[in-house]
Write a protein that binds this DNA or RNA. Structure first.
Length: 112
DNA sequence: GGTGTGACAACAA
DNA sequence: TTTGTTGCCACAC
């Protein structure tokens, strides 16, 4: 299994409930600056044998990465609202819900 | 090893 | 705001 994917998945798992992060943000935190698209691929290859909060990952502008109205978009929307994240027109207010990693999270991540 | 692709991002209009 | 362009880089053919 690819190491980078593991790191991406691990990073995604550190996103707290009720908060969201962008693909680029995850890439940066995973030590892969500029690999936002790789994050998308990693999530696509996500082995469903472990719970991964993939639905907390959005685009840089807060929009859900799937076409509005699509099956996936609906599911993601539902899961987010289940965590008290308000989704309007297929997007959320990043100014309010975007995750801001704190020191504890950073330190945790440094222990690769 | 060239070419096209992608759950992206930043910017222009 | 929405749409199009361009940059990006690991992957799969």
């Amino acid at each position: 299994m690819n190491e980078q994917y593991k790191r991406i998945w691990q990073t995604v798992e550190t996103v707290p409930k009720g908060k969201v992060a962008s693909y680029g943000q995850i890439a940066d935190l995973a030590g892969l600056p500029g690999r936002a698209r790789l994050v998308g691929k990693a999530l696509g290859k996500n082995p469903d044998d472990r719970p991964l909060p993939w639905y907390r990952i959005l685009r840089s502008n807060g929009q859900i990465a799937f076409p509005a109205g699509s099956k996936q978009a609906d599911i993601q929307k539902g899961l987010l609202q289940q965590e008290d994240v308000v989704v309007i027109n297929n997007r959320v207010k990043l100014s309010q819900y975007q995750w801001q990693p704190d020191l504890a999270e950073m330190l945790f991540k440094l222990e690769f």
